[in-house]
């Protein structure tokens, strides 16, 4: 009497399996196109980062950090990257960097337009919200394995899985940022006869920029959090080193790779946060 009656059950799990099989076989050309579109830029970027001399990478990163985030972060960048090099994790870090940059680029390219769409239409927002909730809370192992069926092993399914996990804040905060732009400013824009596109690109997006950048920042952080999980489907880099360490109970190796991930995270976080702030103050000065 207390158990859930069995005759209510239906084979949803089987249907999902059948759907995944069908997608694997019938949609292979479609997934192959996506695979190539992600793999080619990613591998080129990785090879470019490997090709660059180590000191050039440090100089470039430090210069970017100095320009946008100040001297202290630049100093941290130099020390942190030197630490990674000394620990023998340079190549792994470059691979991870390439995966993160690609994942974030895909997330931003898809996320911001979707965020704009959601801001323009209440219906889109209402439909998108439960999907975004699902993407953020569904355990990633659940979609890692289908991702391997569709995209093979390695970095491409890792980027796809990272995208699924990391794109929601970008969409949410773009939506929020545009909706928060004061209606009086929008009214004024309309009164001066700006078209819909002008309104979007000259008024709404610039004013929403700090919020959007906060979303991008969140996306980057979540992408870094996926690094280790993505290595379970063959994405090389720092995540794989962490995995190797813990599998062998080599706590030291695991920690070193983990610390390297933290260094990269702090670096990208500070710079991207500063990017949001400087744009904001720049706009005020200009306006």
């Amino acid at each position: 009497m207390f158990d859930f009656p069995e005759f209510f059950s239906f084979p949803l799990g089987d249907w999902i399996n059948i759907t995944v099989d069908w997608l694997t076989l019938e949609w292979a050309p479609f997934f192959d196109v996506i695979t190539i579109a992600i793999r080619e830029p990613l591998v080129s970027l990785e090879h470019f980062l490997w090709w660059l001399p180590w000191w050039a990478v440090i100089v470039i990163l430090a210069a970017v950090a100095w320009r946008f985030a100040g001297r202290r972060i630049a100093l941290f960048t130099v020390c942190g990257m030197l630490f990674i090099g000394v620990m023998g994790l340079w190549d792994e870090t470059m691979t991870t960097l390439a995966i993160i940059v690609t994942s974030v680029a895909v997330s931003v390219l898809v996320g911001i337009p979707l965020g704009i769409l959601a801001a323009k239409s209440d219906r889109v927002e209402a439909v998108a919200r439960p999907f975004l909730d699902g993407m953020q809370t569904m355990p990633s192992f659940v979609y890692l394995i289908p991702a391997v069926f569709f995209f093979g092993l390695g970095k491409v399914p890792a980027v796809v899985a990272t995208f699924i996990y990391a794109v929601p804040p970008c969409i949410r905060l773009t939506n929020l940022g545009i909706r928060q732009v004061s209606s009086e400013v929008v009214e004024a824009g309309k009164a001066f006869g700006s078209t819909g596109l002008q309104l979007l690109f000259k008024i709404q997006l610039p004013l929403a920029r700090p919020t959007i950048m906060a979303g991008v920042n969140q996306t980057i952080m979540m992408a870094l959090a996926m690094v280790v999980i993505a290595s379970m489907i063959g994405a090389s880099g720092l995540g794989l080193e962490v995995l190797r360490g813990i599998q062998r109970l080599d706590v030291g190796q695991g920690f070193l790779a983990g610390i390297s991930i933290v260094i990269v995270a702090i670096l990208i976080d500070r710079v991207s946060q500063a990017l949001g702030r400087t744009r904001e103050t720049g706009l005020r000065r200009g306006g």
Partner: peptide, 20 residues
């Protein structure tokens, strides 16, 4: 030589290739 990350990853890759 590519590290497959986990036995699940290895199996999924083999199963996916086999089905196709």
């Amino acid at each position: 030589v590519m590290n497959t990350g986990s036995s699940e990853g290895l199996f999924a890759s083999l199963q996916g290739a086999y089905d196709k």
